[in-house]
Design a protein around this nucleic acid. Structure first.
Length: 456
RNA sequence: GAGGGCGUAGCUCAGUUGGUUAGAGCAUCAGAUUGUGGUUCUGAGGGUCGGGGGUUCGAGACCCCUCGCUCUCCCCA
């Protein structure tokens, strides 16, 4: 007999965990709806070509590909062998695989918009809560199957959208009571930096390196920049850029002095200023932080970029997003700009679990357990129980006659707060006994009064 | 793709320089206890020591291979 197991990086979720996860999903969903976003669901799998080339070289490698069916057909054997030869050389081949599991929710959304742009009214605001899959090596806070919760606005270049999405981030984490830092930057600023230091083609090299600043420190970043082919003057300028400190207003001013001469830099800084001004409190403080080292991996971002870090725990980002000028252009429909954000539920869960942030109240299911004390008794209990169920109160009856000991333990294990004893004595007097397991308090009540006798 | 750590009962783990029949706690089941649980006491079941090969008189332990899990780097949510 085989020993059952799970694929690497996937998990089963037991009742308690599901309830906690639902709590997070529901919180996010409520806020999305509150801001006027509408739900969308797309298939778990997409055509491979829809996904390939959208996430960079690294991303392509992490896409879960689905093997075609029927490869073992005798007539196709030779073809399959030669097709597979190509796969071995690192090329994709339609004869072997033409579908893949979705890698994120943004590209499938872009595909959806491109397919349906004639029917949609713009700006189109959708949210999507579904699992995604990545063929990554699992580790802490990293899974092969995990959920994303995305909200995107397409068909509008207005920076008001950025402000709204930033508020959604703040509101969700306020409701969940997770302390976070919301960081913001703008790709145009990074692009300007690249322009000044070695040309646009160096943008990736520069952003990848400076993104690591808080992890590896300035010296290592400089080292990496040299390795990536930048010269002394360029690195010196980047160092000046990285040395920008202070509050948001001060940071903007310093960045202006370095990048203000560049056309893109000017635009990027103006965009950034617009968004954070929108967030500014009456006391002049900001609920979000400008972080000029923030780069984000996905290469379709062109303007504002966001990232959310949980305070006080060792964990990668728990959310991220940004603006893309022309995502649907990849699918032949251009001129639809958009901006979106994403929540990483699995990481948010881990953070909340680690910090003990889940409310007690969500752990509970059944409110009352009816003891089973015999054939006639259980029929009597059943009748009372159905009154409660009809009133929307979750109850169950013990599945068979058993000793009190057993039935009590069952209730305790399932954390059922009340038990009801309806045996021969109670049957004879049309009553039942309700016991609060936490306090030990027990009352005998008339069976018709059960609905109104307790707070549930 | 690169590099660590760990695999012993359902779970968490002991297991000494290699030495008889591999242990504990928790959990499970039964009894003390056939209408009032959580405590206590007694007893029971449960193991190809991840798998394969090797060294040895003798391997849970040492060596090699392999599988699985986990963590770090890269990258990401």
């Amino acid at each position: 007999m085989m020993k059952p197991s799970l694929p690497q990086g996937t998990r089963d979720f037991s009742a308690d965990v599901v309830r906690k996860r639902q709590y997070i999903f529901q919180t996010i969903r409520n806020v999305f709806e509150l801001y006027g976003f509408q739900p969308l669901e797309t298939p778990a799998m997409e055509n491979l070509e829809t996904l390939m080339g959208k996430y960079g070289d690294e991303g392509d490698k992490l896409i879960f590909k689905i093997l075609n069916n029927g490869l073992d057909h005798p007539n196709k054997k030779d073809q399959a062998i030669s097709d597979f030869q190509q796969v071995l050389e690192g090329k994709n081949n339609k004869g072997i695989t033409e579908r893949a599991l979705r890698y994120d929710l943004t590209i499938p959304f872009a595909r959806y918009v491109a397919m349906n742009h004639g029917q949609l009214s713009f700006p189109f605001k959708r949210y999507q809560i579904q699992p995604v899959w990545r063929a990554d090596r699992p580790q802490k806070g990293r899974y092969r199957e995990f959920y994303q919760c995305d909200a995107d606005v397409v068909g509008s270049a207005s920076l008001l959208n950025e402000a709204e999405l930033a508020h959604i981030y703040l509101e969700v984490f306020r409701r969940l009571q997770v302390p976070v830092e919301l960081r913001i930057n703008n790709r145009k600023i990074l692009s300007a930096l690249a322009n000044i230091c070695g040309g646009t083609d160096k943008m990736t090299d520069i952003t990848v390196a400076i993104d690591k600043l808080d992890k590896i420190g300035l010296d290592k970043v400089k080292e990496e920049l040299f390795q990536r082919g930048l010269n002394e003057i360029q690195v010196e300028l980047i160092e000046k850029y990285l040395a920008i400190v202070g509050n948001n207003d001060e940071k903007l001013k310093q960045a202006e002095s370095i990048l203000g001469s560049d056309e893109q830099g000017k635009t990027g800084l103006a965009e950034l200023k617009y968004v954070i001004d929108f967030m500014k409190g009456t006391d002049g403080s900001y609920p979000l932080t400008i972080d000029f080292t923030l780069a984000r991996g996905l290469n379709y971002y062109t303007g504002t970029i966001f990232e959310v870090k949980a305070n006080g725990v060792q964990m990668g980002s728990i959310g991220g997003g940004g603006r893309y000028d022309d995502l649907t252009g990849l699918f032949g429909v251009s001129g639809i700009p958009g901006v979106g954000i994403s929540f990483g539920v699995d990481r948010i869960y881990d953070v909340m679990e680690e910090s003990g942030l889940f409310p007690e109240t969500i752990a509970q299911g059944t409110k009352m357990l009816f003891f089973n004390l015999g054939e006639a008794e259980s029929r009597y209990a059943f009748e009372i129980m159905q009154q409660l169920r009809n009133a929307g109160i979750a109850c169950e009856i013990y599945h068979e006659q058993a000793k009190f000991n057993k039935q009590f333990k069952y209730a305790e294990k399932k954390r059922i707060p009340y038990i009801v004893i309806a045996g021969s004595e109670e049957l004879a007097s049309s009553t039942c006994k309700v016991k609060n397991l936490e306090t030990g308090e027990q009352r005998t009540i008339n069976k018709s009064e059960i609905l109104h006798s307790f707070d549930y």
